[in-house]
């Protein structure tokens, strides 16, 4: 079996881009409400990218990031990551909870829990808008959080693709608050089998 996603034509990529746009748009609104500040987002990019280059999207495989990971369950399963750099995480904690980050390294239970909850809220709004849009039931698992190298974290979401090729289809959106002072990323990596379901739910003919 060859990778069925290697020959997705432009129209289907546009449909996936719209999927990312709707999900991330709702998540950006949720983040903006949480922070009580305007949040900008970039147009999502949808691409089949080699495993090796996935981590480059957030600054390279050794870049330390905070990642909230959720497994999407339901009709169109997949993996979802909310990623932020450490300086952005600190700003977020300060804005939201007036938690001043003290330690040079490591996070308290409270900080972890807050970040995890932020990820949960944002991913939840991403997914529920997606579920509304596609009319497919999708629900996130309890979020899991890690602070580590981007390469190590993201490779975890690529395993479903490993069996069939060396690249994965990634829908990614970048958030910015206050001109890059706070920056976050949303990665949705639907399982390979989920695409047909998403397309047929949206009335896109699949062969």
């Amino acid at each position: 079996m060859t990778n069925p996603l290697s020959n997705l034509e432009g129209f289907k990529l546009d449909v996936l881009k719209e999927v990312g746009n709707i999900g991330a748009g709702h998540a950006a609104t949720a983040l903006s409400l949480l922070l009580d500040k305007p949040v900008d987002m970039n147009v999502p990019t949808v691409s089949l990218i080699p495993f090796e280059q996935v981590a480059d999207k957030v600054g390279g495989p050794e870049e330390v990031v905070i990642a909230v990971f959720l497994r999407v369950e339901g009709e169109a399963p997949g993996n979802m990551f909310f990623l932020i750099r450490e300086d952005s995480a600190r700003k977020m904690l300060k804005n939201l909870l007036s938690l001043e980050h003290r330690e040079d390294f490591g996070y308290t239970e409270m900080e972890f829990s807050a970040l995890s909850e932020i990820g949960n809220i944002l991913a939840g709004s991403y997914l529920s808008s997606l579920a509304d849009f596609t009319q497919l039931p999708m629900s996130p698992t309890v979020p899991s959080i890690a602070v580590d190298m981007a390469g190590a974290i993201l490779s975890y979401g690529l395993m479903q693709y490993g069996e069939m090729g060396d690249s994965a289809l990634l829908i990614d959106t970048k958030f910015l608050e206050d001109h890059e002072s706070l920056e976050g990323f949303f990665f949705l990596i639907p399982d390979p089998e989920s695409f047909d379901k998403i397309f047929s739910a949206l009335g896109v003919p699949t062969e």
Binding site: F51, E52, A55, G60, P61, E62, D148, M149, A150, G151, A152, I153, L154, S155, Y156, M159, G162, D166
Partner: peptide, 23 residues
Amino acid sequence: VGMADLNIALGGHSLKTTGLGSC
């Protein structure tokens, strides 16, 4: 050495792979 990749080195050269998670 990239992800899902292998290589050899000799003559004092080093091999490096970054961001190993479950790999």
